[in-house]
Amino acid sequence: MPLCSLKNIRKSYSLGQEEVEILRGISLEIQEGEFVALMGPSGSGKTTLMNIIGCLDVPTTGEYIFAGQKVSGLTDDELSIFRNEHMGFVFQNFHLLPYANVLENVLLPTLYVSGKKEGAPLKRARELLKLVGLEDRERFKPSQLSGGQQQRVAIARALVNDPRLILADEPTGQLDSSTAREIMDLLQKMGHGGKTVMVITHDLATAAYAERKVHMQDGLVSG
């Protein structure tokens, strides 16, 4: 059974009178443990698709099944729980809370865990900070870190609730090539650890990390 199964996903926005279709019938399967690169020209709908896969957004029509569970039709609260449990996001511009320190940022997803908490979140957060090499920066504010370090914090945050899917939208877009390589190495390490990873990128060097490349063009998957 695939981890993600999308069937004929469409997404359209109404701009004034006009109805603009951004995703025009996408069918895609992602297997558990896969490392996928999503590529394509700007405006082709990559982010839109990733948001739907990550349950941040819902398709206009089509069916999306995640780990055997139908996602379409879930309420806003249920989607929130779904994201909290199964999804880890890494964004192009890091999106850390500026007034929280590194440790607090990593702990953020653990605050919204529903029901009983498994394990000690603080211990796990510290382990992850060690994993990304920032164990000595716990008390630093994001503004005191370099871009690469901020992205490592974001990766630790994405992993803290032990999600099944890591979604990274141009995670190296703001970084120089050597830092980008470090970040990709880290994501690859996650992939080898059994996580399913999906990365949007324009960069071929980045895409080279992926076992599978999905190309998008005008709201459709090509090849």
């Binding site: 990550g54 941040l56 806003d76 609260d77 929130s80 729980i81 994201r83 909290n84 449990e85 999804m87 996001f89 999106h95 850390l96 809370l97 953020l108 997803p109 605050l111 919204y112 865990v113 945050r157 609730n161």
Partner: peptide, 16 residues
């Protein structure tokens, strides 16, 4: 706004 978006993305409900 971004902070709110980030909180929502990691699982905060509207009510949170």
């Amino acid at each position: 706004t971004r902070e709110i978006g980030v909180r929502r993305s990691v699982g905060a409900k509207k009510s949170d």
